[in-house]
Amino acid sequence: MLVLEKLADTKTVPQGGYPQAERCRLSVGHPQALTTDPDIVAALSITGNFGFQPCSHGDFLGAILGTGIAREKLGDIILQGEKGAHVLIVPELADFVTSALDKVGNVLVTCKKIPLLALEYEPPRTKAFKTVEASLRVDAIASAGFKISRTKLADLISSGDVRVNWTTVTKSNTTIKTGDIISVSGKGRLKIGEINSTKKGKFAVELIRYL
C-alpha cells in the first residue's frame, strides 16, 4: 500500500468491516473517486444453540470453508459467545454462505446478512508508551514497540511476517508515519501515534500496542 500511495493521483483504502479488523480488503483509485469507503465487505451473523456445545474460531472457520469458498474471501470471525459469531466476507459470496451454511460443529445454525454497523466487538485493550529513535525506519520503530532486536525484526521482514497498514513490508528502511499500523506475525499490532522531533535531532514517537 505504501508503494501504491507514492504513485501520482492514487489513494488506497483498507477495509475490514470494523476498526480493529485483522483481515482487510484494499481499494485503490483516484482520490476524487474514493470520497467514501467502497462497499467491498459484507457481514454475516451466525446463530445457534451454543450454550451447551461451545464452538471455537477454528470450528466456525472450518464450517464456512467447508461450503467450498476460498480462505482469501473470508475476513475476521468475531466470536459472540453462546450467541454464535459475526463474520466478514466478500459481498458476492454473502448470499451463498447464508444458504449453504447450516451447521457449525454439531450445532445447527441460522446464517443471515447484517449491516456492518450491527457488528458487535469489544474495543481492543491497548498500552501506550513512547520511544526515542534516530530514524522512523520500520525496523527501529517495530523493534522498540514489540521489544525485539532489530536483527530479529530484519529476519521477520525477510520472511514476509511484517506488515504496514496490512501490506507486507520488504525493506527494513521503510519509513512510517503517524496513524500507521504495524503488524508482526505472532507478535500483534502496533499503532503509531504522535511523532515529534527532539532537540538532538531524534524522533519521539508515541506507540500504541494492542494487547
Rank of each mutant, 00 (worst) to 15 (best):
residue 162 V to I: 05
residue 173 N to W: 05
residue 179 G to I: 09
residue 194 E to A: 15
residue 192 I to S: 03
residue 182 I to W: 01
residue 172 S to G: 15
residue 189 R to I: 07
residue 193 G to H: 00
residue 199 K to H: 14
residue 183 S to W: 00
residue 186 G to W: 01
residue 183 S to E: 00
residue 191 K to C: 12
residue 166 W to L: 13
residue 168 T to W: 00
residue 191 K to M: 09
residue 171 K to M: 06
residue 165 N to H: 12
residue 179 G to Y: 05
residue 186 G to E: 05
residue 194 E to W: 00
residue 200 K to G: 15
residue 189 R to E: 00
residue 174 T to K: 12
residue 178 T to H: 05
residue 174 T to F: 13
residue 189 R to M: 02
residue 176 I to P: 03
residue 187 K to F: 14
residue 178 T to F: 04
residue 169 V to R: 03
residue 191 K to R: 14
residue 198 T to S: 11
residue 167 T to D: 08
residue 201 G to F: 01
residue 199 K to V: 12
residue 181 I to L: 08
residue 181 I to E: 03
residue 181 I to M: 07
residue 168 T to Q: 08
residue 192 I to A: 10
residue 184 V to Q: 08
residue 165 N to M: 10
residue 181 I to G: 00
residue 181 I to T: 04
residue 167 T to A: 13
residue 173 N to D: 11
residue 168 T to Y: 00
residue 181 I to D: 01
residue 182 I to S: 02
residue 162 V to D: 03
residue 198 T to V: 07
residue 200 K to C: 15
residue 188 G to A: 13
residue 187 K to W: 07
residue 168 T to S: 01
residue 196 N to E: 14
residue 186 G to F: 04
residue 193 G to I: 03
residue 179 G to H: 06
residue 189 R to N: 05
residue 170 T to N: 05
residue 190 L to C: 04
residue 167 T to N: 10
residue 190 L to S: 02
residue 183 S to V: 02
residue 200 K to H: 08
residue 185 S to Q: 04
residue 168 T to L: 05
residue 173 N to Q: 15
residue 187 K to Y: 14
residue 177 K to C: 04
residue 170 T to S: 08
residue 166 W to A: 13
residue 162 V to K: 03
residue 167 T to M: 12
residue 183 S to Q: 02
residue 201 G to W: 00
residue 191 K to L: 13
residue 188 G to M: 14
residue 191 K to S: 15
residue 188 G to P: 11
residue 171 K to N: 07
residue 170 T to Y: 04
residue 200 K to D: 11
residue 188 G to N: 10
residue 170 T to M: 06
residue 167 T to Q: 13
residue 199 K to P: 12
residue 178 T to Y: 02
residue 172 S to K: 15
residue 191 K to V: 09
residue 167 T to L: 10
residue 183 S to A: 02
residue 197 S to Y: 15
residue 173 N to Y: 08
residue 162 V to Y: 00
residue 168 T to D: 03
residue 190 L to G: 06
residue 188 G to W: 13
residue 199 K to N: 14
residue 165 N to D: 15
residue 197 S to M: 15
residue 183 S to H: 06
residue 197 S to P: 10
residue 182 I to G: 00
residue 169 V to G: 06
residue 164 V to K: 05
residue 175 T to W: 08
residue 168 T to N: 02
residue 190 L to N: 05
residue 183 S to G: 05
residue 180 D to E: 00
